[in-house]
Every structure is written in C-alpha cells, then in structure tokens.
Design a binder for these strands. Structure first.
Lengths: 223, 223
DNA sequence: TTTTGTGAAGCGATTCACAGCA
DNA sequence: TGCTGTGAATCGCTTCACAAAA
C-alpha cells in the first residue's frame, strides 16, 4: 500500500494514457481465448514500440515471464487495479443537449466500470425529460443528491458560456474530478482533477494537416 | 509558399494542438473589443507558460511588438491561416447512433469552419431518417457522392467492431483524414491522417487519478 | 533460444534567462 | 521601461541495446 503510493507518483502521465488501450486489446484477446501475449504482439496491436510497452508495464510491476511473455488474465487484473477499475464509479452528466444525451446512452462507459448516476441541466424545457431511463434534473439538485459523495465524476456537456458555472456547481457538490467537453479553461480549486476533451480542436488539428498537404507536405501524417 | 512549406514541417505537434485554444481565447477577446494582448495575459487565460506561448507563436512567424504585445486581430488571422481555416472543410459522419447524431448537430463544428456534408450508416432502420436536416444514407453511397473529393474528413462514430470496415470505406471514398471515436487502432494507407478520440479512455484516466487519491496521493492532479 | 526488464543514450518539448527592440 | 523572440539549459519520454531469466 505504502509501496504502491510511491509507485503511483512515478508513473508518467503518458503511460497512464496508454493503459486503457492496452487493457482493451487484452480484453479482446481474452474473449478470443488467447491466454499469453508477448510485448511485440501487444505493441503491434496497439501501434506502439515493444520497448515502450515493456517500460510502461514495468512501472506497474513485473508480471512477465522471460522467454514467454505476459499472461493475459494477470495483465488485465493488474492494469485494471492500477486504473482503479475495482469499483464502479458514479458519473453525473451536466447538459442535456445532444452531446449529454449521447454520453448518457453510451455503452462504452458501463462496460468500463462507470455508471451514469444522473443527468442535469438548467433549462426548464429539458428538466423532467426522460433520457436513457433517467429523468433530467435541475443542476441545483445535484448538491443535495450527492451528500454521500458517491458521485465522484462530473461531465460537463454544456455550452462554453455555462461551463465555468457548471464546474462551480460540480465542485460544490463534492465531485472529485471533471471531464470537460466545453472549449474553456476551467478554474477549480486544487484537488479537483480536470480533463478536457474538445471535439472541434481535434478537427482543427486535422485542418492543419490538410492545409499542410495543400502546401505539398506529404510526410508524417497527423500526430 | 515555399518558405511556409519548410516552416510547417518544423512546427511541433504539441504546438499545433495548442493553437486552437489560443485562437478561441483570442476570438473571445475580439468579441469583447480587446485589441492587444501580451504573452503573459494569453498564457494565463489558456493555462500555459508565457515563454511557451511566445515560442509557439514564433514557429508561425513574428507578429508581436516588443514592449507592447500582440495585435488580437492579426494573431487571429495568422493562427487561422496556419490551421487552414481559410476554407470551409466538408465532413462526413459515419454512424447514426447517439454520438453520430450529437456530432451532426454540434454547433462548434460550424463555427470553426467545418460543415457536415452527410451522415451515413449501414443499418436499414437508420437509413432514410432525418438528422439535423440531413437524411441518413448508406455508407456505400459516400464513395459515389465524393467523386469530386470535396469531403476531406471522415468521422467514425460506429461501434468498435465496424470501425475498421468504415475506415476502409472512407479511404475508398478518397477522404484524406479521419477522426476516430471507436476504441480501435485503425489501419489505413499512408497519406491518410487518423486522430483518435476515446471517451471512455478519458474516464479511465480519471479513474487512475481517483484511485491514486484513495492511496493518499494529493499532488499533481490530472495531466 | 526467446523474451522480459532496465540502464543509458537519444530526442523532443518546456522553461529559463537575456539580448534585441519599441 | 516593458515585452517579444530565441539560444541554452533542463526535463521527461522514447528508443536502444543488452544482461538476466526461463
């Protein structure tokens, strides 16, 4: 426990970001009754370098067998443990627009150990509507509903203008981390973890590469 | 033109990824009639280091005035130019599930110079339905509809199992770049640029940080 | 022999610190 | 004086190359 704490601090963010993809590949192998895998094979499937894969896993511990490879079940167990997948995490989605609704019915969340505990909005027209079996509630209710703190994650799927106020609500409701889809830099107190996903930023990056193609650059596509 | 080609090759991917956020901040300042900004101010607003901001901009050219700062209008023009925002880019969305529909009606795309040219699926139940003013068509029609090559970007919003086949269709339809929401590593020929966005990966990364908190780690939240 | 785990080298991005200008 | 633009220093991640182990 003490030892794991020390180790967690040392895992590079880039490694953490790759773990979910490793996990997904491994689960797909498990489904196909493959029980052992080498760093070469798994790296090829995930599009990485074998040395990088081994180094990534070495941050978590030593699970391989030299001359053989990794046991698929064991690796799934270990990566899952480090990603905190032992327990189902409750998520609150704020914003009952198209994106919020899509996220609410997204199967991928459930499969990875996340459960949508509620969907919230401020628009009277949206409140009360049924979305994927959940009733849209007013954001102000979240604070009261989460007195136990069981909802640890908030997803912001509101327009940019409402994002900061939404973040404030989520922080008041004792949410510990936020996934932000609004194209705004959020200010939250220390101890609340924010990750940003911006859909149009991704398109704009693609736009840069298209413009580069138009200037006759063919090399290294997208990054 | 020749010179710009050389420069484009030298811009780090990390810089490109930050440009859209700079642009957005600048546009918000322009709306508020602010016409000049220092690297300190813009860095603060975007959550970056002033030196990094200046270095990022220096890859594009020299637009600042020493002792004063940057002209907001000029900077917007320049960043827009490098991101290829001069022309509206046509996008095809594949997958008419919740996510595909949400993307189809997403205002952020239009505002940033992208236009949804069509939405496609393979499910007979979905085909023919109306989504945000567009009729869902069969994916096989895309190839014929894009003989002119005006659709440069494809968005994959299908289930993971269908993603590779969808990518193949998009490549056949002469799409030049792909934004992939399926949690799968796509194999496409050289010259086609792929960017991956995985919503549950983001939650899993948050899961790692929540697990770290449970182990008593308070430092550096999310990355 | 095969494949892991890892020190060391290599590489790219960030940050510093200051010269160059307005 | 104030702020940009940038070489130099630093930091952290990736990749190499090989010793260790099955």
């Amino acid at each position: 426990m003490k030892e794991e704490k020390v180790k967690r601090d040392k895992i590079p963010p880039t490694t953490v970001a790759r773990l979910p993809l490793y996990l997904r590949c491994l689960q797909s192998m498990q489904d196909r009754r493959i029980d052992s895998v080498s760093s070469f094979k798994l790296a090829q499937l995930t599009g990485h370098n074998p040395a990088q894969l081994r180094k990534d896993l070495s941050y978590l511990g030593e699970f391989g067998t030299r001359g053989v490879g990794y046991d698929v079940d064991e690796l799934i167990r270990q990566i899952g443990k480090w990603l905190g997948a032992a327990k189902v995490r409750q998520v609150a989605i704020v914003g009952a627009g198209h994106l919020g609704r899509a996220l609410c019915s997204y199967k991928g969340f459930i499969n990875r150990g996340f459960s949508v505990a509620g969907i919230y909005d401020v628009d009277p027209a949206a409140i009360g509507q049924q979305v994927a079996g959940l009733k849209v509630r007013h954001i102000d209710e979240l604070e009261r509903q989460n007195l136990s703190g069981s909802i640890e994650i908030g997803i912001i799927a509101t327009p940019a203008a409402a994002a900061q106020a939404t973040a404030d609500s989520l922080v008041r409701a004792r949410v510990r981390s936020i996934l932000n889809f609004a194209p705004v830099k959020l200010n939250v107190g220390a101890g609340v973890c924010v990750r940003n996903v911006d859909l149009s930023t991704e398109l704009q990056i693609i736009g840069f590469h298209l413009a580069s193609l138009e200037h006759g650059i063919t090399s290294d596509c997208c990054s």
